[in-house]
Each structure stands twice: as C-alpha cells, then as structure tokens.
Nucleic acid binder design. Structure first.
Lengths: 234, 234
DNA sequence: ATATTTAATATTGTCGACAATTATACTTAA
DNA sequence: TTAAGTATAATTGTCGACAATATTAAATAT
C-alpha cells in the first residue's frame, strides 16, 4: 500500500526520484531518526553526484524531514514526544481551519463523493474485521479530501506538502497504525455532515476535537509504552 | 529600519547572504512579482556561481517567495487578491493557535516584557503623530513576541520562517504600510490582557478577530484602489 | 497567410574537482 | 592522567563544464 500525497507531482528529474526514496526511508525509519547524513556516503549509495543529492536534501528540508546546519551537515529529525504534541497542535489549527473552509468552498459533487467514500469505508469496516485498512488508508483519505476541499492553496501546501510527512513519520516510528477505528469513523461521519450543512463553525470545531482526541489517544499509548518499558528494566 | 525575522540566523555562507539580498529584493518589489528568474543572469549579477545561486533559490522556495518547475525554471510568486485572502486565513488559524499557546506557555517575565513594550509603543504613539513607526515595527514586534511566546517550535517555524515573508511582501506590494493604527493598538492591548489572565480560549478568539479585521481592512483598501483605477481609465 | 515541422538557441539538471570549514587524532605540557 | 594545542583527515561549500530539456526562430507545407 502506498499513501500518495495528493500534492506531489510525478517525479521527472533524478533528484526527485532520490528525494522520494529518501522520504520513504526516513518516514519508515530505515534511516534512523536523529542520525547524521553523510553526503558522500548517500551519493555513492544512490549512484549520483553530490549536487543532485543536495538538491534532494533541500526538498527533504522543505518538508521538515531533515535539518541542516551550515558547515556541519544534515541530520534526520528526531521524533520526540514534545515534537509530536507540537505537531498535533499545529494540525488542530490548520486542519480545523481547512475544514471550516471546506464547509464554505466544497462543491456539491465533492461533498457527494466524500459521502460515498465514507459509505464504502463503512462497508469495508463491516466486512473485514482486520480494521487495519480503514485506519491507515481511510483515515488519511478522509483528511486529504477535507484539506483539498478547502480550496485554499496555502493551507493545502502547508498541510499536505509539509506537515503530513511528519505525521506519517511519527505514526510509523511510534507504531501508531491502528488507533480508534470505530470512534474515528463516527467522528468523520459527523464532520462530513457539518460540511454538507455548510456549517463552517461546527465543522471546524468537530475537526479540532477529532484531532485533539487523536492526540490524546497517542499520548496515552506512549505513556503506556513508557510504563511497560520501565517495568521491564526492573 | 530593518524588520528582522526573529528565527533567522546570522548568515555565514555566501548563499545565505545572497538569499537575504534576494529576499529583500522580492519583498520590496525590486524583483517584480510574477517575473521569471534567470539563473545565469542572477548568478552573474551577484558574482557567484550558479550552484550557490541555486542554493539561495532553494531557500527562497522554502519561504514560498519563488516557485520552481522542473526543467522550466523559477518565478517570483505573484501577489493576487486570492493569494492574500488565503494567506490571512492561514494566519488566522496559525496565529490564533499560537496566541492560545502563548497564554498557556509564556513565562511571567515574557508577559511583563510584552506589557512594557506596549506601554512604550503607547508613548511613541502619543509623541510622534507620524504613526508610521507603530504600524510597521510595533505591529510586527507584537505579533512576533506572541508567536515566540507559544514556545511551539513547529508554529514558530511555520509562521515566522515562512508565512511572514509573504505577509511582508503583500504589505509592500499593495502599499499597506499604515493600517488601523489606534484600533490595532487597543486590540493588541486586549490580547495581552487575555494572555496575562492565562485565558487561552479568549486569547485565541481575540487574535483571530484581530487578524480578520486586518484582512477586511486590506480588502477594503484594495476595493477602493480598484475603483479609483477604474474611474481613471474612463 | 497560417499552421506545422524542423533547426538553432538558451536554460536547467547533473557531474567531478577544488577551496573553506569542521571534526578527529595525535602530541605536548601541566 | 588530564587538558590544551596542533596537525591531519574528512566533510561541506563553491566553482566551471557538459548533458538533457525546453524555448525560440526559421523553414516548409497547406
């Protein structure tokens, strides 16, 4: 399965291709979070010159997957709990507003399509009790559709082009692939209803609560993990 | 006067210096919005190689001041009314949340400092009726302090590192240097009060209204400009 | 004369090498 | 033995040249 970012173009240049490969490697943890990046090493590994590698690194920096310091080098961002909380607070602000704008700006066709999508997900959910599908793909599909529905290019670029790479990274690294299946489904359902009613205020509020709930759920999971880890040490 | 972005580091590399120069040139309209960028031309103009110019261009792209298409080249972003509205809606979401977080996270010292700053601005305002100072510097200082006060690195990077370059660009290009002096001052005052009271909800609401009012003010000005332009044509 | 194809030109993408800076290892002194 | 300083090695920043792609101009056909 391949969760395609809806804002990414087809890669034409080799720097683009290497960028995508590195992106996956970082998001999925094949390149350890916080680890240093060796330009000569990576260039050799991908059989490209340092120039094109640096071009790819620049794009990774744009979506905040690596950090660069002048005359020192690049590091993969590290996943801290504080960083995760900051990320979700930012999502709450941006996606909340995107949802409000979606309620104002989505076409009737787009809304109908989203409702169909949700119905289909409901079917999937009933059929396969291995709910994994809905969480991963369904959840992201839903959020992407809402964001695109805002028809606000600024919001779309910020959320899809930058924030969501980090979101996926955290999901992978912290093993948060299957959260709150049925709850999330109901929440999605209510959000779509608010959008269909063209109630921007309610849509924003519901989206913010949805993301806040997701954040709290993850906080709990991490707290449990840490507790387990601690008892193991003893 | 030189409105320094509080997140920018001292430029050490030549690419950094060229980046800053280009940044100013774009923001202040010395490089026309929407105009094409010639890599060979600019490199020659700044007496640097194309490699380091491209490094600088990458940073400009990071703060959304230019746009690149593969195998085609870069253009300075153009300032459209739609773009301006999108920008302010995004600001409303991000700075609103930043203000809420500032109410939760600012230290008492930081709050006291902001209150002092506002008092001083009040003095300036009374003294020099050329209110230009307060609008430009005072307004940005205030917003920067609130954003930094959120203590949320994600929000700080997004707003100061990316959004505000565009904000300043629009202000310059549309000649919006002196908006709503006294009104803005009162609004700032109330926002600081809410932060001092640690009332995150109110602080967010007030900041959102403050930015929305600013947006509407600009919309009006543009509408007037267009009307004047139209009557001139006839 | 207009539209389409083809050739020429200019621009961007990629490469390898050198210069400047930083990190490492070693030597020397306290 | 530890600390500071120095010399070496490695890494990043910058450069100019070549290859691939896109844009423009000319030529041909309709």
């Amino acid at each position: 399965m391949f969760l395609q970012n809806p804002t990414t173009q087809a890669a034409v240049t080799t720097a683009d291709k290497v960028f995508e490969q590195l992106q996956h490697a970082i998001v999925e943890g094949d390149m350890a979070a916080g680890s240093k990046i060796s330009e000569p090493g990576l260039a050799k590994h991908y059989q490209i010159s340092r120039s094109t590698l640096r071009e790819a690194l620049n794009r990774l920096e744009k979506c905040h997957l690596i950090e660069r310091k002048a005359n020192v080098g690049s590091r993969v961002v590290d996943c801290t709990i504080e960083g995760l909380l900051e990320l979700y607070i930012t999502r709450e602000a941006l996606e909340g507003m995107a949802c409000r704008q979606a309620a104002l700006n989505m076409t009737d066709e787009e809304i109908a399509y989203m409702q169909d999508m949700l119905t289909q997900h409901a079917g999937d959910k009933a059929l396969q009790d291995g709910v994994a599908y809905y969480q991963e793909k369904g959840d992201l599909d839903f959020h992407y559709k809402v964001i695109l529905g805002s028809h606000n290019q600024q919001l779309i670029n910020l959320i899809c082009g930058q924030l969501y790479h980090l979101v996926r990274m955290y999901r992978c690294q912290f093993g948060m692939n299957s959260p709150r299946a049925s709850r999330a489904f109901d929440e999605h359902s209510r959000i779509i209803q608010a959008i269909a009613d063209r109630d921007g205020e309610l849509a924003e509020m519901l989206m913010r609560r949805h993301i806040a709930a997701s954040r709290k759920n993850i906080e709990n999971k991490i707290a449990l993990q840490e507790a387990a880890q601690k008892s193991e040490e003893i």
